[in-house]
Design a protein around this nucleic acid. Sequence first.
DNA 1: AAACTAGATTACCAAAAAGTAACCTTCTTG
DNA 2: CAAGAAGGTTACTTTTTGGTAATCTAGTTT
Lengths: 102, 102
Amino acid sequence: MKYTEFENCGLKKSLDMISGKWNPLILYHLFHQGNYRFNELWQTIPKVSKKVLTKHLRQLEENGLIQRKEIQGFPPRTSYNLSNKGKKLGPILKDLDNFGNS
Amino acid sequence: MKYTEFENCGLKKSLDMISGKWNPLILYHLFHQGNYRFNELWQTIPKVSKKVLTKHLRQLEENGLIQRKEIQGFPPRTSYNLSNKGKKLGPILKDLDNFGNS
DNA sequence: AAACTAGATTACCAAAAAGTAACCTTCTTG
DNA sequence: CAAGAAGGTTACTTTTTGGTAATCTAGTTT
């Protein structure tokens, strides 16, 4: 495998999707409690800044792992939950967790 | 899961082990060709600097994923290969690769 | 009409990760 | 005795990532 091939191999793509500082924790919460509004998530993850949380969520959304929905009403709310693709990560994250604990 | 728990959960540990910029590629090569000497690896991965390659290798070694051996003779050589623990990552990396390609 | 709300965005700053080029060591070879 | 070889280390710079605090929007409540 050459460098150029590596840059867009599946492994690299997957790791880029999940390895931002807060992504594993965001995914963890979405796996364990279906869906979150923005501020809920922000309060649940105490140390992340809004800016970075937004950035992580946008990126997860772009990569198709989560879905963002705007909820009608005022003030405007958003809801985030795992997509079908995102849910497929479940067993892999579990394997990684087991590996890290072994 | 709270932030403090997250900091030393298995998932975080695993991701920290493998998500350095060059780690996936280093592991890939070790999986596909048993062992490498330092300069072999450096030439195989054309853009990494010696400094960073060394750092990655040291870290993989500390985490028990690879083994470093000094080979007697002159000039002194080193050889790197996967440990048993490292080999256990194989299926997980394969899953991540499939996921990223899907 | 002022204050409040959720979900951000902006400008600016700090820290972490990676890159570059030169150098070191210890023997061996020409 | 100068040059070369393998496997690094060092000092310094750049890039990437994340953090802080202030601000915005537009409808709602007091």
